[in-house]
């Protein structure tokens, strides 16, 4: 197992370098950061040149990248447009997005798996068809539509929640945004669970479990669920990364000052350190989440553990 982890970590290096370099290049293409610093005023050429030299901007791109990465690994992510260190923005934004993601994951787990198991066990029944239609509807509605509609209904029309989330984003205010963020994946988790359950119900080993005279409860929990949920749990694991990155729309709708919000601001203000810094951390989170999922997979499925 230990060797496997080390091998996976080594495999992650090129992915990390490739994706961060790509981001670095794209942000570079955004425009001249020095000009952005001065806003509408044209900078004095001498000052501009000095700043360029300080920021390594007169060097070739790959040197800038190496320099930047070197600084990152020393914990220096540069300065945001408002003069704050990017690390400070991150310390404020990441916990918020993480909290939002956890709410979404929790909803996916509980609601998605429950609906999936029910419809998988009752294939062709009323509940199955209803869930199927419901997931179809949910999948076809884009997040910004469901987000604004739910915000309007709950926050404005019925006035049961605050329509926007306060700066420190407490958990109870994140429930509705969490639902909005979860919706699309939720429909997917439901379908994945349903398919997996329906497949395993017909499996030979389940017939064996029945032939052994096990009580129905035990057959379902110990034999059916244990097998059916392996792909679901691993999907949810990989989803952590995409949810964190994908929270940008939800965060904008509900004015949540999380990762998506900060990256958006960074792009608007042409602030490379913010964008590259946040994305770099996202890449790391994504890679680690994937590694954990692979390990989890091995824990859940002995066929992989002892391959």
């Amino acid at each position: 197992m230990g060797r496997y982890v080390i091998r996976r970590l080594i495999q992650m290096a090129p992915v990390f370098i490739g994706s961060t370099f790509l981001i670095f290049m794209m942000v570079f293409a955004l425009g001249d950061p020095v000009a952005a610093l001065f806003g509408d005023k044209a900078p004095d050429p001498a000052t501009a040149a000095r700043i360029r030299e300080e920021l390594y901007l007169d060097q070739p791109l790959w040197k800038q990248y190496l320099h930047y990465m070197g600084q990152i690994f020393q914990g220096d992510f540069g300065t945001a447009f408002n003069g704050q260190p990017v690390t400070e923005l991150m310390a404020a934004a990441y916990p918020v997005t993480l909290r939002l993601t956890m709410v979404a994951i929790f909803i996916e787990l509980v609601v998605g798996i429950t609906l999936g198991v029910l419809s998988g066990l009752k294939r062709g029944h009323f509940i199955d068809s209803s869930v199927l239609v419901l997931t179809l509807v949910v999948i076809s509605i884009p997040t910004f539509v469901s987000g604004y509609v739910l915000q309007y209904l709950f926050g404005v029309k019925w006035d049961v929640i605050r329509p926007t989330v306060s700066v420190d984003a407490p958990l109870n205010e994140l429930i509705l945004p969490g639902i909005v963020l979860a919706l699309v994946s939720l429909a997917y988790v439901t379908r994945l669970t349903r398919t997996s359950i329906a497949e395993n119900v017909r499996a030979d080993y389940l017939r064996t479990a029945v032939a052994k005279g096990l009580p129905r409860r035990r057959i379902i929990t110990r034999h059916l669920l244990r097998n059916s949920l392996i792909p679901v749990v691993t999907f949810i694991g990989t989803d952590i990364g995409s949810l964190m990155g994908g929270a940008i729309v939800t965060e904008t709708i509900f004015n949540i000052h999380g990762v998506g919000y900060q990256i958006y601001q960074g792009i608007l203000r042409n602030n490379a350190p913010t964008v590259v810094g946040f994305v770099t951390i996202l890449v790391i989170v994504f890679l680690i989440a994937n590694l954990l999922v692979d390990l989890l997979y091995a824990v859940l499925d002995p066929r992989i553990r002892y391959a």
């Binding site: 080993y205 017939r207 032939a211 052994k212 005279g213 499925d301």
Partner: peptide, 20 residues
């Protein structure tokens, strides 16, 4: 079932639970 009468199936690999 299982206690007083029991059954052996054709394909043992698919008839045993892979994760237990």
């Amino acid at each position: 079932r299982g206690a007083e009468m029991a059954m052996i199936f054709q394909d043992a690999l698919s008839s045993l639970n892979p994760v237990l």
